[in-house]
Design a binder for these strands. Structure first.
Lengths: 199, 199
DNA sequence: CTAACTTAGTTAGAGAGACTAACTTTCCAG
DNA sequence: CTGGAAAGTTAGTCTCTCTAACTAAGTTAG
């Protein structure tokens, strides 16, 4: 019988996935830089050399977590968009809210996703996929099928805004700025303003 | 003679400052997480135990660099503002440009400044000082002296925007989004839109 | 069913880094 | 000139990443 290609459990369980889960838990618990391979091994109950049968190095473990993150965020974005008319302000706002809420709920993973260090082609592609959802909605709003330069120029400030908001909140700067505005209101307002045609 | 409290050079030169400089250079060269105390020591030509006479630990060395950063950014902001009428769109935009340009020129330091890990009271205060310049300008624009809630609510989206822009550029996501708009134009546009009174 | 191969784990250890303890040198005050 | 504090040093501990060499378990061919 041909191997099912996905997760075949050889000796123990699916160690790779267990390690990714342990890594993720640690990254959330203590931040990406304080994560250690050794500790993930202890959590998974294997020797410290075991991960190297599944990952080239420490970085690759973190990348695996970031990949998971992009998958989840893309999924959540699609779900959020589907509740509103394509290309509507509501659809676009909803994606922004998802973005920030994802960061709030998974600060460690979110930071990894955009860390800039350890960039992989896979990671870049996953990011591309995620941003694609946004570009698609903005194009729809502009009555276009193709994603051209105008779409890019319109979408980018939106991304910029929610990205900044996500980071400021993660790093505790939002409270510091004493802004208690409701997240949805804030994003909706910024979306409307940034999408406004310059007068 | 009473000690001058600032930098008295005992044995060798002012090792503390030399270490901060070495740390900064390394942080810029290889990123904050890959920075090592040992390497800073080699750069400064001292033993690996020497830093611990000046800093409690590795983190404190990084914090010192971040403090420098806040000082420089505050200074640059003030300089930029002074070229325009107080509270004008130009003054506010100019600060945004300074923010992003500082991040471009000092990505490692910038990341440290907002890392969220190793937060100190000193660091928070320095950040406060920096943001104060912005709040002051926004208050002026709104014809106010006091920095009240309305000022905060107006200023925060601006910060959010430039913060996001800074991070996206640092992490190479701006090119990825294929946006080649001139930085000043982009910031000026966003400033105008985000300052617009919601209709 | 078993021999040969592959996969996934093990232990042991090298090399680097953070930090500590105990010692030494230098500077300064009285 | 002498005692004490400041600022270095060496040596050593502990932890971490990653490698090498070995072993056990599962897979496949004959």
């Amino acid at each position: 019988m041909a191997k099912v290609k996905t997760k075949t459990a050889y000796h123990h369980g699916d160690l790779r996935q267990q390690l990714v889960a342990a890594t993720r838990a640690l990254v959330e618990a203590k931040g990406p830089d304080l994560f250690s391979v050794s500790e993930a091994c202890r959590a998974a109950g294997v020797s410290t050399a075991a991960p190297y049968k599944h990952f080239a190095d420490r970085t690759e473990m973190l990348v695996a977590v970031a990949m998971e993150g992009f998958g989840e965020m893309a999924e959540a974005s699609v779900a959020a968009v589907s509740k509103h008319p394509p290309g509507s302000d509501e659809a676009i706002s909803a994606m922004g809210v998802v973005y920030v809420e994802y960061a709030d709920a998974n600060p460690g993973v979110f930071k990894m996703m955009f860390a800039g260090d350890h960039q992989t082609d896979d990671l870049e592609e996953a990011g591309h996929g995620c941003y694609g959802v946004v570009l698609h909605q903005v194009a729809a709003r502009m009555g276009k099928i193709e994603i051209d330069d105008a779409v890019m120029r319109t979408a980018f400030p939106l991304w910029t805004f929610v990205h900044g908001l996500a980071f400021l909140r993660i790093d505790g700067k939002a409270e510091f700025a004493k802004v208690d505005t409701d997240l949805e209101d804030l994003v909706a307002m910024a979306t409307r303003q940034l999408l406004a045609v310059p007068s």
